[in-house]
């Protein structure tokens, strides 16, 4: 498998996962260890999530300053559906008080930062 691009491997794993073959994860782990690429595992995860998005499955991280209510979660899922056009959404949420307010949505290869921290950072670094 040496010399195969990350994108091709990610496509293979993503297709396997969508076909319900859980063993592709084991195969990938074995490949990464064998090739001495274990430290790149995070990149492969990003790449696989990116491929899954193109296959209609969005794995998204939602980070908020406070605990997310069910209504807000639904609204965010609708937003993801609207922006990406996918129907199957897997949301991972976590709380980060440093955001001060609002939320940050991390999708594979894309981000929507609607946090107060981001607005303040932009204000600080721009020439107003």
């Amino acid at each position: 498998m040496a010399g195969i691009s990350r994108r091709k491997i990610s496509a293979y794993v993503a297709d396997g996962l969508l076909a319900g073959k859980g063993e592709v994860i084991q195969e990938l782990a074995a490949y990464l260890v064998d090739e001495g690429k274990a430290k790149d595992a995070e990149l492969y995860v990003r790449s696989i999530e990116s491929t899954l998005l193109s296959r209609g499955v969005a794995v998204a991280d939602i980070i908020t300053a406070r605990e997310l209510t069910t209504e807000m979660q639904q609204a965010i899922e609708q937003l993801i559906g609207r922006e990406t056009g996918v129907e199957k959404i897997e949301l991972r949420s976590r709380v980060e008080p440093a955001l001060l307010g609002g939320f940050r949505l991390d999708l594979p290869d894309a981000r929507l930062d609607a946090s107060v921290k981001h607005s303040l950072d932009t204000l600080r670094t721009s020439k107003v």
């Binding site: 929507l112 930062d113 981001h118 607005s119």
Partner: peptide
């Protein structure tokens, strides 16, 4: 400055 209208 706020341009958080969509995914970046």
């Amino acid at each position: 400055i706020e341009t958080t209208s969509g995914l970046e």
